[in-house]
Design a protein around this nucleic acid. Structure first.
Length: 471
RNA sequence: GUCCCCAUCGUCUAGCCGGCCUAGGACACCGCCCUUUCAAGGCGGCAACACGGGUUCGAAUCCCGUUGGGGACGCCA
């Protein structure tokens, strides 16, 4: 049987870290087994589902590169099928109409809580068996077995047992006739021939109910793997309403999708001491059964470290494409200066994110307005006018505008002026970059281009003269 | 409250089918080295088996309990 997994988000918010990891695990499981991965949008909650959320989820999946073999399938387009199953269950006596008012249920729940019981439906309408009424609204409830136990054979947790009398008769269809989650998942997982359901362990408690529904439908449930939640730094679960940010925000912040994926795969899963995994390695090594049972905490520092690893080691041309996107966000025209790939080469060691790389490379493409105040104060002092003027002449005269020859000029000038390398390099750096930190000054000058470099030195000299005359 | 899940350094984890563990790696942090800046890199350091009972010659590893955390208890998914 072909392994088939699915990722089934509800479009009621963003695609966050937790969802992305569930999607990744499902995707990896399918790929590892040469199976198929399905994307299903669980949009039966008409109140909260939005087209924007759908778009964001699809974009997030695409950015991460989690390609699906089928989908997106929308549950709202399968209502006919759900109704068919509903009437089947109804006619077989495995579901029934419930006419209880919301008020009655609220009171019931309050009483049960007060008594120290688990709130659950009391089966009041179980044996009423009235046809739908035009005047009294009704829902359809599943007739859950009230004896025995249900065992959830879970790939990460082992067998988890629930007593049927802990489970109540859940609502399968709302007053307005629309089906609810617990019915639609079952029908869909069945119809879509899903073999492995990998999802957050917040669903573990729903699983015995779903298994009972599978049974009522005369079918075997799929295999389950409930993966632990991801917590925020405050120890609280990461969720749409708590500390979760869209995966797309990581793109904006300059993270590589492969770095995020790598970070995510190591959250709750490991392969010995290995930290960095190519996509192929993930597919090869991943096994849901190796997923941890304990929840883990999201650590932005480690994500950043991994991102830096990728920036440093991945093909510069690939990084350059992502850098180009970041440059675009800063309204920088990459054609206005050094080739992006060259910039990547000199900046990758000192850039943990692509956004940082872009921000620190703006001066290659655009003149800056002001010098960094602290840098100017420290390095642009009147005494440096002479050395800057002399090196400017030598730089203008150098035959080959290349880092090596530029380097020689700097060394020679420092020596001739009785300056330590840093005493000349730093003022020069501030002059051409506007700040005290940059890639090595010789390559920086090379990438800047002679014309631009000389112009900026001129500007610095002018600035210094002005400072001198107007202290 | 009831049910379910979980428990190794601050964080992610290795280990878990018992001895190879004076508990390993990574991130972060702190030193030192290198150095034209910022980095990168090298070397070193700090730091954990939640607690209590068992079982055993021997337990981080198995069992029970306690405590702590998380989840579920919806006409949300």
């Amino acid at each position: 049987m072909t392994v088939r997994t699915r990722f089934a988000p509800s479009p009621t918010g963003l695609l966050h870290i937790g969802g992305a990891r569930t999607a990744l695990f499902s995707w990896l499981h399918a790929r590892h087994h040469g199976g198929e991965f399905v994307l299903r949008i669980e949009d039966t909650d008409r109140e909260r589902s939005t087209a924007e959320s759908v778009a964001v989820i699809l974009e997030g999946m695409a950015w991460l590169g989690l390609e699906y073999d089928e989908g997106p399938i929308f549950q709202t387009q399968r209502f006919d099928r759900y109704h068919e199953v509903l009437s089947q269950l109804l006619s077989e006596g495995k579901a029934y109409r419930c006419y209880c008012s919301k008020e009655r249920l609220t009171v019931l729940r309050a009483e049960q809580m007060a008594r120290g019981d688990k709130p659950r439906y009391d089966g009041h309408c179980r044996h009423v068996r009235r046809p739908p009424s035009a005047t009294t609204p009704s829902v359809i409830r599943f007739l859950n077995p009230n004896e025995g136990t249900v065992v959830v054979p879970d790939l990460v947790r082992g067998a988890v047992e629930f007593r049927n009398d802990e489970l109540d008769d859940l609502v399968l269809a709302r007053t307005d006739g629309t089906p609810t989650y617990n019915l639609t998942v079952v029908v869909d997982d069945l119809d879509m021939a899903i073999t492995h359901v990998i999802r957050g362990d917040d669903h573990l408690n729903n699983t015995p109910r779903q298994i009972n529904i599978f049974q009522a439908l005369g079918s075997a449930p799929p295999s389950y793997a409930h993966v632990p939640m991801i917590m925020g730094s405050d120890g609280q679960r990461l969720s749409k309403r708590h500390g979760a940010v869209s995966v797309l925000q990581y793109r904006q912040e300059g993270y590589l999708p492969e770095a995020l994926l790598n970070y995510l795969v190591r959250l709750g899963w490991s392969h010995g001491d290995q930290e960095v995994f190519s996509l192929d390695e993930m597919v090869d090594f991943f096994d849901v059964r190796d997923v941890n049972r304990a929840a883990s905490t999201f650590d932005p520092d480690k994500l950043q470290w991994l991102n830096h690893q990728y920036i440093k080691n991945v093909d510069p041309a690939h990084i350059a494409r992502h850098l180009s996107w970041q440059m675009g966000r800063l309204n920088i025209d990459p054609a206005a200066g050094a080739a992006l790939i060259e910039v990547v080469m000199v900046q990758r060691e000192r850039s943990k994110t692509l956004r940082e790389m872009a921000q620190n490379s703006v001066f290659f493409y655009e003149d800056f307005d002001d010098y960094d105040a602290a840098a100017a104060k420290k390095h642009l002092k009147p005494g440096i006018i002479g050395p800057l003027t002399r090196i400017r002449e030598d730089l203008q005269a150098v035959s080959q505008w290349a880092a090596s020859s530029i380097h020689e000029v700097i060394v020679d000038n420092a020596e001739a002026g009785g300056l330590k390398l840093g005493q000349l390099a730093q003022p020069l750096r501030v002059a051409v970059c506007g700040r005290a930190a940059s890639p090595p000054i010789d390559t920086t000058l090379e990438l800047l281009g002679r014309e631009r470099a000389l112009a900026r030195i001129d500007r610095a000299i002018e600035y210094l003269r002005h400072q001198k005359s107007h202290p």
